[in-house]
């Protein structure tokens, strides 16, 4: 049993979301940085998609009422278990009465707290993710508040060294000088003027404060323009879609995006880079680079293979750890 000590309207329970409910109009949802959630779950020998807490509002504090193994992954935020400083992407077992504190990230934007067994909240439409817009999933369909108590699905501890253990190569975070986002051309790409396509690639776009789980609005000096007016019927859109509304400033659809939209689409961010965008802080520059679909498939397959290898390595390591 854990107890949340700090409230916010933004910290939510997330797993891998509801990729099979989009036909009902339900957002795909799920962790914005799925790799970070995966790392946390692998360290705890959980199913890779077990539900954890996505933390974007700091400081975040949680109290352990029972002995509980947990991991903190994602953003590089100073983490302390009582007075013990925890390295990045680290798992450890808390004793009853201890408190975990996560302070504002030094790099990245969102951290994940995973717990041994995964959080025990009822699955809704196939997932435990919180859908804030729909008001379901997670804990009562809302963000976590002070005094919320949560328990885990399985045994709450895992055998590990007393000081914990972690990854030597934590999930990559975007460097302070800018996030490079690889994209594929989307449906209306060719309808944008040649100058606008140049601008799209040459601009250091700024991430505006209008950035949440539904979408990230970017701002650049020059607006993107179509070469002819378009009136599109509503169509399905996926997280990663870069829409360009009439004002000409791009909006990138994120995990809780509407499932349908009507604005022209210039590009789609490849999945491995969408997590990097989710770790980008407001005000930071964002650069787009168009790649081919073959390259995108290769990158996605490489990431899947790397994650598989990491899972195997952690499993092997766990058999060799001396307790």
């Amino acid at each position: 049993m854990i107890e949340i000590l700090t409230g916010s309207s933004l910290n939510t329970i997330q797993d891998f979301g509801r990729p099979h409910a989009m036909a009902m109009g339900v957002a795909q949802g799920g962790a914005m940085d799925r790799l970070a959630l995966s790392h946390g779950n692998l360290l705890l020998d959980n199913p890779i998609d077990a539900a954890g807490i996505e933390i974007v509002f700091f400081p975040f504090r949680v109290h352990f009422h029972a002995e509980t193994s947990f991991a903190v992954t994602g953003a590089a935020c100073p983490a302390t278990l009582d007075d013990l400083k925890l390295p990045r992407d680290w798992a450890i077992t808390a004793k009853p009465g201890q408190t975990l504190t996560l302070r504002a990230p030094e790099q990245g934007a969102r951290a994940y707290l995973t717990l041994r067994g995964g959080l025990d909240v009822p699955p809704v439409l196939g997932a435990r993710s919180t859908d804030l817009k729909g008001g379901f999933g997670g804990l009562e369909g809302r963000a976590l508040q002070k005094s919320d108590r949560l328990s885990c699905l399985a045994a709450s501890t895992l055998r590990m060294p007393a000081t914990g253990y972690g990854l030597t190569r934590p999930c990559p975070l975007p460097p302070a000088n800018g996030t490079r986002i690889r994209v594929l051309p989307a449906a209306e790409h060719d309808v944008f003027t040649p100058e606008s396509l140049k601008t799209f690639h040459a601009t250091a776009w700024t991430l505006t404060p209008s950035a949440n789980r539904m979408g990230y609005r970017l701002e650049g000096q020059d607006a993107l323009k179509l070469s002819r007016p378009l009136s599109l019927f509503s169509h399905g859109i996926l997280p990663g879609t870069v829409q360009v509304p009439p004002a000409g400033q791009p909006i990138i659809q994120m995990m809780d995006a509407n499932t349908c939209g009507g604005y022209p689409k210039i590009a789609t961010v490849i999945a491995p880079d969408l997590r990097l965008l989710s770790q980008t802080v407001v005000g930071a520059p964002v650069h787009f680079e168009t790649i081919t679909r073959d390259d995108a498939v290769q990158i996605i397959r490489q990431e899947a293979a790397d994650l598989k290898r990491l899972a195997a390595d952690i499993a092997t390591l766990r058999t060799q750890l001396v307790f």
Binding site: P19, H20, G236, I237
Partner: peptide
């Protein structure tokens, strides 16, 4: 993975891995 019918259009998703 899933199909999302729009207005005179259709979005299809699959696992590219």
């Amino acid at each position: 993975l899933q199909t999302i019918p729009g207005v005179n259009n259709l979005l299809v998703t699959f696992d590219a891995v």
